[in-house]
């Protein structure tokens, strides 16, 4: 019967399509991004950050990087606190992505100092030798256009002032990109909350052990050399040849990082590897 009446057929097909649509796509608007979702401290992007975000979109970074940390053990350990809906209320469009060819970036902000990002964006392999991320040196050559960015802020309805717009003059797309990356995931104080306290005595389990020192050397090469230099001569980070720190003190620095100094923590390497690193750094080699 129905197969003889195309108009009726199409109306019924439309209804069939709209049921699931209404429940799973339309209805969530009642709850998502409402007051219940809001998180204090989550702020709109500044003009510089928003432009950085638009460059991130233009270059298709979302094809290889996700921006959402799932509440799974290994994932929270690797990237940081899991993502909350209220953190994304100013994201138009969302940039959660679908593939992690590179790491998730939802908690990137504040992990590295600016200098790391400038160098890494220009030539990723200079920092991470085996990466397949393309180089983006031309971002340094493209100046920002304050008028275009002002118009974008108006369209989005984000607050800004004339000083912020004036400050854009003379800045490059690279500056905008780095500003954006440093904002990612840092609206909530998750680093502070995730800080671990070390309980009990810190005793070096491998004092003077040659195998631990050489293992530490390998860990240094793959995790530390990009910032502190192949021979610990210092680059983005300070030189590490003569630190004069006790083993226990150094362990704490490596474990927790120096959040205000741009040094990431390496607790996720596990205590064995951190101790190996301590033995290498304090071996006098």
């Amino acid at each position: 019967m129905l197969e003889k009446k195309p108009v009726l057929f199409m109306i019924l097909a439309t209804l069939a399509i709209l049921v699931g649509t209404a429940v799973t796509m339309v209805l969530p608007f009642v709850w998502v991004n409402t007051a219940a979702d809001r998180i204090e401290g989550v702020t709109p992007y500044t003009p510089l950050q928003q432009e950085g975000r638009d460059i991130y979109i233009r270059e298709g970074c979302n094809n290889c990087h996700t921006q959402t940390v799932r509440p799974l053990v290994a994932e929270v350990l690797r990237y940081g606190d899991y993502s909350k809906s209220g953190e994304f209320v100013y994201d138009r469009p969302f940039l959660w992505g679908s593939k992690r060819t590179g790491p998730d970036l939802a908690r990137l902000g504040g992990k590295y100092p600016d200098a790391w990002h400038y160098k890494h964006m220009k030539s990723p392999r200079s920092m991470v030798p085996k990466t397949n991320m393309p180089d983006y040196p031309w971002l340094n050559d493209n100046p920002l256009d304050p008028d275009v960015i002002r118009n974008k802020m108006e369209t989005l309805g984000f607050p800004y002032d004339d000083e912020q717009i004036a400050d854009l003059t003379g800045k490059t797309e690279m500056d905008a990109m780095v500003a954006y990356l440093q904002k990612l995931g840092s609206d909530i104080p998750w680093r502070k909350a995730a800080e671990t306290t070390i309980v009990g005595d810190l005793t070096n389990p491998f004092p003077g052990d040659a195998a631990a020192i050489s293992a530490g050397q390998a860990i240094y090469a793959s995790n530390c050399a990009a910032c502190h230099g192949d021979n610990r001569e210092g680059m983005i980070g300070p030189e590490l040849t003569d630190m004069g720190m006790e083993d226990a003190e150094l362990y704490q620095v490596l474990h927790n990082g120096i959040p205000d100094g741009g040094m990431p923590g390496f607790s996720n390497l596990g205590s064995t590897k951190v101790w190996q690193l301590v033995n290498f750094l304090n071996s006098g080699q």
């Binding site: 969530p28 608007f29 998502v32 979702d37 809906s85 138009r92 469009p93 969302f94 974008k152 989005l156």
Partner: peptide, 24 residues
């Protein structure tokens, strides 16, 4: 979406809503 210029627009939905609409 809301156009900002001829070749730049911002999604009419934000964050989690945008994600849900998009994967629908």
């Amino acid at each position: 979406a809301v156009p900002a210029s001829l070749f730049k627009s911002y999604s009419a939905y934000a964050g989690t809503n945008d994600a849900n609409v998009h994967w629908w």
